[in-house]
């Protein structure tokens, strides 16, 4: 018994070594190797991204406008003149509209008149992903709910499914309504749905979302499953609320009120 176990371990060790060195040997064998696809080394990674908005640090719409502008400018979000065609990635609304189920007659004046930021909640169980017939809307491993504009057929099922009203549709060509194009980011074409992408294109190059940068520290962004992250720190020390929790979608945007 003793003997055979030892010999088994030896054998296993040698084979493991062999397996481990194979790629190295292969690399020596030839200059040519298979083409590879990688992430940028500076990309930010997380198990599940989340955002904490500290509304105590805001007083009026003037504090929020630069944040909305930063996002919309960087993502080439058009400013339509017709209300019907409006497109928003992040916008401002009142407490009673953002937290429809928590509003009551005697809400204190500060909260009642305080403007709130609203954006895609990047839900844990996103209804929009469930209903999309082409997987144009999908959820990444790090929790971000993204859109593939190349694939969207414009059926708008996701807009009906989203319980937070976070999605917009390009009812017409957006280009004439973009004041100043950001050449680093594409625009959209008429006929596709769009929404906040948690700045996936910035995370990929090691930058935090634009709204976080523009918020002067009022918005925190980080990994929900990293106990040392800024968002976890805030969640531990503050009471937070989320939108329409009873629907079970699991929104990733937390508000400190």
């Amino acid at each position: 018994m003793e003997n055979s176990r030892r010999s088994f371990l030896k054998l296993a060790g040698i084979s493991a070594l062999g397996l481990g060195t194979k790629p190295v040997l292969n690399a020596f064998a030839s200059e040519e190797h298979k083409a590879e696809i990688q992430k940028k080394p500076e990309a930010l990674k997380a198990k599940r991204w989340a955002m904490v908005i500290d509304t105590r640090k805001f007083e009026s719409e003037e504090d929020l406008k630069p944040i909305v502008e930063a996002c919309h400018k960087i993502h080439n979000v058009p400013e339509h003149t017709t209300k019907r065609h409006e497109i928003d990635w992040i916008w401002i609304d009142e407490f009673k509209h953002v937290f429809t189920n928590q509003e009551h007659e005697f809400v204190d004046d500060r909260v009642k008149y305080l403007p709130f930021l609203v954006l895609c909640n990047h839900c844990e169980n996103p209804a929009c992903v469930r209903v999309c017939p082409t997987k144009a809307t999908f959820q990444r491993d790090d929790g971000i709910v993204l859109m593939d504009f190349h694939r969207c057929i414009g059926c708008r099922f996701c807009m009906a499914a989203c319980p937070y009203g976070s999605r917009s549709f390009n009812f017409r060509d957006p280009r004439p309504f973009i004041k100043e194009e950001n050449k680093e980011f594409p625009t959209r074409m008429r006929g596709v749905v769009e929404k906040c992408n948690f700045c996936a294109e910035r995370l990929a190059v090691g930058k935090k979302p634009a709204c976080v940068e523009a918020s002067n520290g009022a918005i925190a962004f980080g990994d929900l499953y990293d106990s040392d992250s800024e968002v976890r720190e805030l969640l531990k020390n503050n009471y937070t609320i989320r939108r329409k929790l009873e629907l079970g979608a699991g929104p990733a945007i937390y508000y400190i009120v």
Binding site: P133, I153, G154, C155
Partner: peptide, 26 residues
């Protein structure tokens, strides 16, 4: 009517190209 309602009808066949049994529309 479905075709008339699509924003990008030229891509309608994406529903077959990327079949998604989780979607009721499929």
């Amino acid at each position: 009517f479905i075709i008339a309602d699509l924003g990008y009808p030229m891509r309608a066949l994406n529903v077959l190209l990327y079949p998604t049994p989780g979607s009721v529309l499929f």
